[in-house]
Amino acid sequence: MTRIEAILSRNKDLFHPTTPFNFTKDPFFVFDFTKDNTALADVNLNDERSFNDYIFGSLAKENCKVGVGGYGENRTIYSRSDVFSDTENRSLHLGIDIWAPAGTPVYAPADAIVHSFKDNHQHGDYGPTIILEHELEGVKFHTLYGHLSRSSIEDLTIGAEIKKGTEFAWFGDYEENVHWPPHLHFQVIEDMGDKFGDFPGVCKPSEKAMWLKNCPNPNLILNIPGI
């Protein structure tokens, strides 16, 4: 266990929920975006209706208001965008996604300041993104919120204080978050390096150990049972 993982584990009961869903009581659907999910073969991921129908049709079929999943998942869905292309494609997901309607509020899990924000508007990217900086036990770390509404970043200022439990952002719609069905990409980052308003949410599988060390499991904060 790394230092930041140990700190998050010791403080896991202190975090405020990042969304309005009660994952210990309300049913939720776990999405699978790996090659093992044969249902994805029938989904046109670059077509708004097809992708949205798959996400929200799955939730309706399972009588769930929210879907989750993704940390450490080796996904096939990123081939739809050049953002993730390289000699070895980036396909290993470094965050947890929470799939729910546009406009769903987002709350700060702990006291924070605004580290940075940006509209990452390339096709398949995050769209509007906010990164918060936190400190626990004298150690700084960051949380990233991707696929937000543009209104989420309109009145932000770098260094602004955001108290634990404050509603500070909202899920974006399909166009705002650059052709993804509404959801939140939530990621924990220890060292931001020189990144500002953006940070890789997907890595090359061959670099898994390095990236997962710097981006520990977000469920240490989310506390979603069974994932």
Rank of each mutant, 00 (worst) to 15 (best):
D82L: 10
N52F: 07
L92C: 08
E88R: 12
E88S: 13
I77T: 14
N89K: 13
D86H: 15
S58Y: 06
Y71F: 15
E62R: 14
Y71L: 03
T104I: 09
Y71M: 09
H93Y: 09
Y107L: 08
A60L: 13
Y54S: 07
V68H: 02
F84L: 12
V106M: 12
G69Y: 05
R90H: 05
G57Q: 10
S81K: 00
A102C: 12
W99R: 01
I77K: 13
N52A: 06
L94D: 03
Y54W: 15
G70L: 03
S91R: 10
E73T: 14
A100T: 07
E73S: 14
K65D: 11
L94A: 08
F84D: 00
F84A: 11
R75A: 10
N89Q: 15
D86S: 13
I96M: 14
A102V: 08
N89A: 14
L92T: 07
L59A: 11
E62I: 01
S79H: 12
G57T: 13
D82G: 05
R80Q: 07
E62F: 01
A100W: 09
S79A: 14
A102Y: 08
G95T: 06
P105C: 14
K61Y: 11
V66P: 01
G69M: 03
I55P: 02
Y71R: 11
A100P: 02
T104R: 13
D82F: 10
V106I: 15
D82H: 08
G69T: 12
D86L: 02
D86G: 15
Y107D: 06
D86A: 09
G67P: 03
L92P: 01
D86Y: 08
I77V: 15
D86T: 02
L92E: 00
A60F: 05
